[in-house]
Amino acid sequence: MPNTPLTRVLTFLGAAGVPTLCFLLWFLFSPGWNTLPVSRPYAVITVQKGESIRSILGKLRQHHVIKYERPLLVTTRLFSSLRNIKPGRYTITTRHSNYSLLEWMHQHPQDEERIMIPPGLRMEAVSGLLGSRLATDSISLVKAMRDPSLLKQHASTAGSLEGYLLPGTYNFAWAGSPEEVLETMLFHFRMFYDESLQAEARQKGLTELEVLTLASIVEAETPLDEEKPLIASVYLNRLAKGMKLQADPTVQYALGRETPERILYRDLDIDSPYNTYRHKGLPPGPICSPGKASIRAVLFPAESSYLYFVATGNGGHYFARTHSAHLKNVSKYRRNRE
């Protein structure tokens, strides 16, 4: 090749380009020199909605995931798509390079929170539990539970999602919106309350809301799954005879009590459609979140002619077909409490 000014420039650029390329590769892809040291096994970073890349990098440095912010800023200028990091909580567990850390946060699903929703909670208690563990707050969750568009979408004729929040263990996206959190729970409810259970309800002449309402009363009456079909049979028998349900949990609900308390005679006079001592039939809607066992108990009740029950004082209930037999059971309960 002739020794011309052009060839000398190309030779110089080629010689300089190889070291430059090696440095760039090391700068972008070499793990550990600017990221989480071996002595720190993991770090948890929270990214808020609308948070800037500079703010995110500041958190990474504050949590000792990176030593310097500028190398990652340079990386985002070379790869602009890496600036887009979804809001959420991220647990960073391995040593990364500048590039791989940003790519991991850009593509990796946010952390999930595993939460167990126990049966028998009211929707305010469910929202409080979720709000204490997720990025969303309980007030926003309660508001979404009463959102008419969400209710219409899921064919609920009630004024809220009370009774539709199926108890169980869920994996929620930590930064999920209230609507996304509720959609997760409603999806599981629809998976459980399938066509076979809907057909059973239709055969018994019960609407979905009526099934959930009665199941919520059963849930509030007893924690014993083996007893629930018998409890359900009592209420179904009373409904068939046109008798008032006279269910204490509905009075507790009408009084606004979050935890059960002793019912006094004056409590039975409360003017509320949920007071089943004053009004015949079912209350307007569920009083808590019934579990699967309670819903099945309503659809597959025990065969009985019982019309009354009272607590034994030892965790279960005494059942009776007549009022006189019921009064004897009440006396037994009182003796057990002494």
Rank of each mutant, 00 (worst) to 15 (best):
D225W: 00
D225H: 08
D225Q: 04
E226F: 10
E226M: 11
K228Y: 01
L230Y: 07
I231W: 02
I231C: 02
A232E: 01
S233K: 05
V234L: 05
V234G: 06
V234S: 00
L236Y: 09
R238Y: 06
R238D: 06
R238Q: 02
L239A: 05
A240C: 08
K241F: 00
K241C: 06
G242Q: 06
K244C: 03
L245M: 10
L245T: 11
L245H: 09
Q246F: 07
A247Y: 02
A247D: 04
D248L: 10
D248Q: 10
P249L: 07
V251H: 13
V251E: 08
V251T: 12
V251F: 12
V251P: 13
Y253H: 10
Y253R: 02
A254V: 03
A254F: 03
G256R: 01
G256N: 00
R257S: 10
R257A: 07
E258T: 14
E258K: 15
T259N: 14
T259Q: 15
P260Q: 03
E261M: 14
R262L: 12
R262S: 13
I263W: 10
I263R: 12
L264G: 06
L264I: 04
L264A: 09
Y265T: 14
Y265S: 15
Y265N: 15
Y265D: 15
D267C: 03
I270K: 13
I270H: 08
D271E: 14
R278H: 10
K280E: 11
L282K: 10
L282M: 08
P284A: 03
P284V: 02
G285N: 07
I287E: 01
I287H: 03
I287P: 02
C288E: 05
S289L: 07
G291S: 01
G291Q: 01
G291P: 00
K292C: 00
A293G: 09
I295N: 00
I295L: 00
A297N: 02
V298N: 01
V298Y: 04
V298T: 06
L299Q: 03
F300P: 00
F300D: 09
F300K: 15
P301V: 06
A302S: 15
A302R: 07
E303F: 06
E303N: 14
E303D: 15
Y306G: 08
Y308M: 04
V310E: 05
A311G: 11
G313K: 06
G313Q: 10
N314P: 02
G316Q: 13
F319Y: 13
T322Q: 07
T322C: 04
H323D: 07
H323A: 08
H323F: 13
S324A: 15
A325C: 11
A325L: 11
H326N: 08
K328L: 12
V330L: 01
S331V: 11
S331K: 14
Y333W: 10
